[in-house]
């Protein structure tokens, strides 16, 4: 086709990617609002079945990068936390084409699905003609709109650890309205508390800075502690989080974003009895 490639298999796609400067086109919903030069070529990925898988194995919930939000919402394998976030993205027509891989590759701090992948420490499978690498999603983000992919590399799958994906969770989103709303602040938290011991605790903040904010080293302040111990550590934890959360001004002010983030965080602690 003119200005485009529509490979039917992964090998062919990676081959094209290695030889050309074609831009991978997953669902198109981010690409189509950008102005591109007339000689731009798209690499259409919708025919590649491998990129559409949704499955679970003993360790991971696995989904292909070109799964649309609708496909993920309709799958019984998709963890509830991810479904909660996806259900509040845009509106049905967008969810029917927009993909989870596109959401990640666009590297927006407002990416709602990516926020969930971040809080669950999801692994990203990246393929090129030369091989495969698997990296934690947090390593992928270099800055707003910048992602650590080499020429010829394609995000192909997400591996969300089962022991993170199904923990008690909290998802919050501030948008300007109830649908078709781009996040102005978003929050996701997961926690594992059994017999009064905190075995896991993770938080992530979206739409407040250049990248999604995830601070495992701070969340670690609460891990391994009993609820009572956590209550003691709470002040220090909140103070450090307060320090690390440096929002930027956008459609809403930095001060508002900060206040809401801290409110969500405190609320999440309270839900866990901390």
């Amino acid at each position: 086709m003119v200005n485009g490639y529509a490979p039917s298999g992964m090998r062919e796609a990676l081959d094209i990617l290695s030889k050309t400067s074609a831009i991978p086109y997953a669902g198109g919903t981010d690409l189509m609002i950008q102005e591109v030069p007339a000689d731009t070529n798209y690499l259409f990925l919708h025919r590649i079945r491998d990129l559409k898988c949704i499955t679970v194995d003993a360790e991971y919930f696995i989904c292909g990068a070109c799964c649309t939000y609708t496909e993920l919402l309709n799958s019984r394998h998709t963890p509830d936390l991810l479904k909660e976030a996806i259900a509040r993205i845009a509106a049905p027509a967008i969810r029917n084409t927009a993909t989870i891989g596109g959401n990640v590759a666009n590297a927006s701090p407002k990416a709602d699905a990516a926020l969930i992948l971040m809080v669950t420490d999801t692994l990203v499978r990246i393929q090129s003609k030369n091989g495969v690498r698997i990296v934690p999603i947090s390593d992928l983000y270099l800055g707003r709109g910048q992602i650590d992919l080499l020429p010829g590399e394609l995000i192909t799958e997400f591996w969300m650890p089962n022991n993170r994906a199904h923990l008690p969770h909290s998802y919050e989103k501030v948008g300007g309205r109830k649908a078709l709303a781009i996040s102005r602040v978003s929050f996701a938290g997961i926690s594992d508390v059994s017999d009064g011991q905190i075995t896991h605790f993770a938080t992530a903040f979206g739409a407040v800075s250049d990248v999604i904010i995830r601070r495992p080293e701070l969340d670690a302040l609460l891990i391994g502690k009993s609820i009572e111990e956590a209550k003691v550590a709470k002040e220090e934890y909140l103070a450090k989080m307060d320090e690390t959360l440096v929002p930027i001004q956008g459609r809403v002010s930095a001060a508002y974003r900060k206040a809401v983030c801290m409110n969500f965080l405190e609320d999440f602690l309270a839900k866990n009895g901390i």
């Binding site: 509106a91 309205r177 649908a179 078709l180």
Partner: peptide, 9 residues
């Protein structure tokens, strides 16, 4: 950037 109500609002 200028939001008007959707059917859900």
């Amino acid at each position: 950037d200028y939001l008007i109500p959707t059917a859900m609002d």
